[in-house]
Amino acid sequence: MEGTLIQPHMMFQQPRVVFPFAGNKISLEAFAWAKELAAKVHLPFYVFCSLLPENLFSKIHIYHEMLEADGYYFTHYSGHPSEKTHIRIKTGDFRSNFRHYLNRHPNDIIVVDPLQDFSGINNPSGLMGYPNGIIFLRQLESSGAGEDVFSHILDTADVYHLPPGFHAQAHRKPHLASLFLSLLGRHN
């Protein structure tokens, strides 16, 4: 069992929407969708990345990728420019660092781009042992965004550890925030 035993202090951590990024080419659509989700539910948006020590020189490219992805987001979605991207770049093996992160942040919602190579954890079985809300994106639109596209991507995603009726409620935009707030209180 790779999951976590939730400690009392973890119940009160501020949740975030987290987009894991393995350091290779980023999917602009997946990034933008995850950031839009964070904006809609008023949660901070984090990118989690881990690089091996020998690849640290390419750290600069991670920032470049993020800036380009932010540009894509602001071009195609209606999020305000004050919506920040926070980035956490760890040193070491991605798989073990990400598992450690999940153990430490059980309230975070993870948005997974299936096209990225996460060494075996970009599939449901690799993450099911964790209590985090997980959204595996399946069909990404490359032709922009908008409410319809956002909803379509959500419809076709595989979601885990989210409340019953998630899809139905998610389409009712005004209730999305409260849905997430109730979801995030699930450990209390």
Partner: peptide, 14 residues
Amino acid sequence: VKSAFGQLYTRYSK
């Protein structure tokens, strides 16, 4: 036009 901001962002944020 907010998408214009996105394009300028892509062009100059680096």
